Amino acid sequence: MNGFEKRAQLIKEKIMKTTLDMLRTSEPKRIRISDISKTAHVSQVTIYNYFGSKEALLREVFIHYVDKIIRDFEEYMNGNHSLKEKIEHIILLEKETYKELPPRLIKDLLIEDHELSRYIEDQYKEKSIPLMIRIIEEGKKSGEIADNVTVEGVLAFIQLFMNQYEALLEMAAQSGDLDKFMEDMVHMFFYGISGKP
């Protein structure tokens, strides 16, 4: 990469970082190219030259964000962690993601951009699900997951949990102790309400 390409890459990264920072506090509809331009200290023309439109910029920022989450997820899952630690990581990953970007913002982005929605769905099917299946199968082989529990059953249980994650986070916030609430959820995920057998 020559000097011009490096400089161009740095400018593009600065625009994307500025946009991601703005997404943490503003709805996508309220963010304007002029605001991004002013905050990133680049011209509006530069932003249009790199991304073409605000929608394309938002899409690229979110894809970059999701790709990093997936890389980090794969790295953790391939690490030397127990099955319990890996499943706990899956459950608590949503909490960390929602701290970064509010759930309503993510929903808005996916509803408004079908291409982005398809990309996220493809990543989930092609990378996340196969990795989770492998982890569950390893857990069954090691005896950490009961023989009579199917891979499909564990995946369904995780999915049910994730589908209600926004509501769980609201309850956790109302409880006054988010971390303790989430620890309880993880404990019940593994051992039910009766405690560890």
Rank of each mutant, 00 (worst) to 15 (best):
I91G: 03
V61P: 04
K54H: 13
R71W: 01
E94V: 03
K107P: 00
I69E: 14
E74F: 05
Y124N: 13
R59T: 12
D113K: 03
K86E: 11
L93Q: 06
F62E: 07
H81D: 02
K99S: 09
E112V: 00
S117K: 06
K68W: 01
E88I: 00
E75G: 02
M77P: 11
K95S: 10
E121S: 14
I63N: 14
E75N: 07
F73H: 15
M77S: 09
R118I: 04
Y50I: 05
K68F: 02
K86D: 05
P103I: 00
K125G: 01
D108C: 02
E85L: 05
Y65T: 01
G79K: 10
H114D: 04
E75H: 10
Y65C: 01
K125R: 11
E88H: 00
G52A: 08
E100W: 06
K107F: 00
L105W: 01
H114F: 00
T97Q: 15
P103C: 02
K86G: 06
S53Q: 12
Y76S: 14
S53I: 11
G52F: 07
F62Y: 12
K107H: 04
G52M: 08
E100C: 07
Y50G: 06
V61A: 11
D67R: 14
L116K: 03
R71V: 02
L101D: 07
E55W: 12
S53G: 10
P103F: 00
D108P: 05
Y76Q: 07
I69A: 10
L105Q: 06
N49Q: 15
L105G: 08
Q123M: 15
K68R: 09
R104Y: 04
